[in-house]
Design a protein around this nucleic acid. Structure first.
Lengths: 372, 372
DNA sequence: CTGCTGATAGAAAAGGCTTACTGTTCGAGT
DNA sequence: ACTCGAACAGTAAGCCTTTTCTATCAGCAG
């Protein structure tokens, strides 16, 4: 065997070593590894043998430089321990790794912003960047997304929006969404059908597209029954458990009148459960509660939380499919209409008919009483 | 301004453009961006201005190639939606991004194996690879880890073990662990102090180092009180909720005699709760339950789960600190002793004194009865 | 026998950044 | 006034692959 020493790298073989060992040029080796150019059968075999014997593994960085495109896919999420994002990220990862792409997860909860991460991914020439989760859709939104999209396109990266509004126009940005309005409407109907008329909507950042859509579905379901939702029964803030917990306490302290709570998501619902327990309110006898997302905690809550299932993992998978789809066809219209995935109601035990004898009220219920 | 067109890339500026615009050589620009070589103040300012004006962003792939080391850090975990791993990964990510490294998450639950990912990370010249979670420690373990370690070291990558046994020897592999034995012992003592003598250990893959250590802590705490744990009360299998749920049903069906359950982790504990509810067993009156890890679900279970807190995020952070620590000092002994993080018991409401009148028994309790 | 075509394979030029070397400048020491 | 060395900046050789041309070779039609 050709015992030439590896140059460069730290003791690693390069395409050069393989070429020498196989008695071909580096170009041929490259053609064998990338497989997108004809190589004679015998030659291919020799090259493959040399690669095996030398334990050759291509330098992905050199490849990325030469191709000016890396096989990396950036997943920009808010927080990787939040199950909503974890499941979407998993979907992205599954679809990515099935195509040989590696997933860079970029949580914006820490010191880095979405924009920092986009820059870093740009430097890396990531193949695809998936922006996950709701966004603040103000007058700058479309402009900002479009600019980002163009900047990325110029560098050969693709952008896909996942769970936030698409951006149309002459060069639409690929988007994959799920049905927030429909889901909210469906679960509100469920509450309505159980007899509730005064429902507290609790949680979610007010400016976030997700919140807007859910609230919209909620309010319009009520409106369809001729119910006018009072402003004091829509309390937005954050998606967190602690915010919702405090939120329920506040609403009760202020004497708000409601028999059910629509928590902005399941995590918030957990906060509602906690506060209800602290108030000695039984779910669902004294208070019905519904959530959104159907993340695993929904089933661990006691009683089980009735909620809206969001196809989180499918959302992630679909995002990379859509993002990579039109790689071949140069037809920009292909990605014009955003994909939207359906949601469905998951029935558990947290909803019952309103209890006329016992309604949530001011602090006369001693707090901290526990479940019993 | 110098309006030279960007060469190469797709419309992007290169270090060359910046050099031209600033009237310096590319070497100088490089020195400004990397900051590891003195540059006169005025020159630096000019270069920085040029970069800003051109919107220059370095090509990370070219840099990685030239430096033969990318600013990537691989996190090899079993599953990104499992909170145990999600929290560790978050710790890694936080520490990584504070050093300008990006995190590649590599879940081995899918089609890829740990070894596949290691290869891919090798191709990329990842700066650090963190292997998270317990491992099957058989006769090959040390050998395999050591080999992997050497292969990585040869390519300039570092390896750190996180939550699995370290590998000593002449060139020890950096490891960061947490105290499984001590934690298990402590929470077993808590059960013992509450009066329990017959405790079922439930869950966790039998061969996994994590399971071994937890069971060891459990058994030795019992032994310290002169209790000999019968084999039928150690039931290992998987960490999953569903496995544990079925496991409790099986144990009960087989008439096993116990008053408390030590679930291998909190997720398994959730399964125990579910099965207990299906059996009409009240926690903690009829059955005490403890878990391990203290992931968020522990607090949502009702009653709150008494468990062992594992500093998951700190574990991840410490792993990258330790892995990157001895970059400077070439002293290999620096990482000899694995770091081990402490655990502590979190008291909630799932433990009570054993109930003499009511003990878990065969199927006479009608299943599916719910909580009420 | 000549010129052409198709299938392969090689040479060499990117691709963008880092860094060892090699200057150059300028102030300080003598 | 002269040498020395610090401080800074430029030159150019990498780092490893990909890919565009170009060359070679067989086989074949004319």
């Amino acid at each position: 065997m050709n015992q030439n020493v590896a140059r460069g790298g730290v003791g690693r073989r390069t395409i050069h070593d393989v070429a020498l060992a196989a008695g071909v040029s580096t170009a041929t080796v490259s053609r064998v590894t990338s497989g997108n150019y004809p190589v004679a059968k015998a030659t291919r075999a020799r090259v493959e043998r040399a690669m095996r014997e030398l334990g050759y593994v291509a330098n992905a960085n050199a490849r990325a430089l030469a191709r000016s495109n890396s096989n990396l896919i950036g997943i920009i999420i808010s927080d990787m321990v939040d199950p909503f994002f974890a499941y979407v990220a998993r979907g992205v990862e599954i679809e990515a790794s099935s195509r040989g792409l590696m997933s860079l997860v970029c949580p914006t909860r820490g010191a880095m912003t979405e924009s920092d991460f986009v820059d870093m991914l740009l430097e890396r020439r990531a193949a695809l960047i998936v922006l996950v989760g709701g966004a603040v859709v103000d007058e700058n939104y479309h402009q900002a997304i479009r600019e980002r999209h163009e900047r990325l396109a110029a560098a050969g990266s693709r952008l896909v929006l996942c769970g936030r509004p698409g951006v149309g126009g002459p060069a639409p940005v690929t988007a994959v969404e799920y049905d927030n309005v429909g889901g909210a409407r469906a679960i509100t109907d469920l509450l309505l059908n159980a007899g509730h008329r005064r429902i507290l909507y609790l949680g979610g950042p007010p400016a976030l597209s997700t919140t807007r859509a859910r609230v919209h579905g909620f309010v319009s379901a009520l409106a369809d029954r001729g119910i006018d939702q009072p402003a004091e029964l829509i309390r937005t803030g954050q998606f967190s458990r602690s915010w919702a917990q405090q939120g329920l306490h506040d609403a009760l302290d202020e004497g708000a009148d409601f028999t059910a709570v629509f928590a902005a998501n399941d995590i918030a619902a957990a906060g509602v459960y906690a506060a209800a327990r602290e108030r000695g309110l039984r779910i669902p006898q004294d208070l019905s509660v519904v959530g959104y997302d159907d993340v695993p905690v929904a089933r661990e809550l006691n009683p089980g939380l009735t909620t809206v299932e969001v196809p989180l993992e499918a959302l992630g998978r679909e995002a990379v499919r859509a993002g990579l789809r039109d790689s071949g066809s140069s037809d920009p219209q292909a990605s014009d209409e955003p994909t939207v995935l359906g949601t469905r109601v998951i029935h558990r035990e947290s909803v019952a008919a309103p209890n006329p004898s016992r309604r949530p009220s001011r602090r006369q219920d001693r707090p901290g009483a526990g479940t019993r």
